[in-house]
């Protein structure tokens, strides 16, 4: 199935980081590519939300919502700069 772009998780990221993140730049921990959050590949139609690097396809972020809390895994993200 086709990925959505990073704008699809604007609200989710705003909740997690408490600021507007779609124009921030995320650096992939796997390949080192820096991508604007709005350009990331987002898979929402899964048990959780999976965000992948548009260059190498590896997972940068995973969000799982559970009982009103969002669990966040950013181990695929080297860093994020607003």
């Amino acid at each position: 199935m086709d990925a959505l772009d990073g704008n699809a998780i604007a609200g989710l990221l705003h909740n997690v980081f408490s600021s507007e993140m779609t124009t921030a730049t995320g650096t992939c921990a796997t390949c080192g590519s820096a991508s604007v959050v709005g350009e990331l590949m987002v898979y929402l139609q899964a048990p959780g939300t999976v965000v992948r690097c548009p260059v190498c396809g590896n997972i940068m972020m995973v969000f799982v919502r559970r009982k009103g809390m969002t669990c966040v895994d950013l181990t695929g993200l080297a860093h994020m700069a607003a």
């Binding site: 199935m1 590949m41 898979y43 139609q45 899964a46 048990p47 999976v50 992948r52 396809g57 997972i59």
Partner: peptide, 9 residues
Amino acid sequence: FPVLSAGPT
């Protein structure tokens, strides 16, 4: 039959 996926097909 919803399609669920965590990545490209």
